[in-house]
Computed example of a mutant assay.
Amino acid sequence: MPLSEYEQRVLEQMERQLTSDDPRLANTLTQRGHRPLGRYVIAGVGAAVGLLLLVLGAANSLPWLGVIGFLVMFGAVAFAFAAPHRAGPQGVVQGDGKVKPAAPRGRRKPGLMSRLEERWERRRGESGR
C-alpha cells in the first residue's frame, strides 16, 4: 500500500530533521551494509567444526574437547557478525607527492545520549520546572 501525500511529507520532514540533528547516524542508516559472502562461509565451516568437536567431546567423555568445540563455535559466530576492519587514511598527499601525516583528531563530538540529555534539560528549563 503506497503512502499518502501527507505521510510522504511527514516522512521527508523526519528524514531532514534526522540529517540535521545527527548526520553521522543518518549516513550510517542510509549506507547499505553488506558483508562479503566469504566471511559467512568461513564462519559456517568454523561453527560446524566447533559443533563436531563439542559432540565428540560429549560422546567420548572428554570435557576439554567439548570446551574447545564451544569456543570454536563462539569464535566463528563472533567472526561472522564482527565489523570488518577497514584501514583509514594514513596521511595527506601534498602537491609535491610527499605524504604528510594526518592531523590528530580533536575533541570528539558528544554522543547521542549526552545530546539527548542536553535537549531534555533545555526543554525542562523552558517549561519552568
Rank of each mutant, 00 (worst) to 15 (best):
M1V: 06
M1E: 09
P2A: 10
L3A: 10
L3H: 07
S4N: 08
E5G: 09
L11M: 09
Q13D: 12
Q13I: 06
E15S: 12
E15N: 10
L18F: 01
L18H: 06
L18P: 00
D21G: 00
D22N: 13
P23W: 00
P23I: 03
L25M: 12
L25N: 03
L25P: 03
A26P: 01
A26W: 04
T30W: 01
G33I: 11
G38Q: 15
R39N: 14
V41G: 08
A43V: 13
A43N: 05
A47G: 12
V49Y: 01
L52M: 09
L53E: 02
L54N: 08
V55T: 10
A58P: 00
N60D: 13
S61P: 00
S61T: 08
L62T: 13
P63M: 10
P63K: 06
I68Q: 02
L71P: 04
L71S: 14
M73W: 02
F74L: 15
G75R: 04
G75P: 03
A78Q: 12
F79E: 05
F79G: 09
A80S: 13
P84Y: 03
R86G: 13
A87K: 14
A87C: 08
P89I: 10
G91K: 05
V93W: 02
Q94T: 13
G95H: 09
G97P: 02
K98W: 04
K98L: 09
K100Q: 15
P101M: 05
A102M: 11
A102T: 11
A103K: 14
A103M: 05
A103I: 04
R107G: 00
R107K: 10
S114G: 00
S114F: 00
R115Q: 09
E118F: 00
R123F: 01
G128F: 02
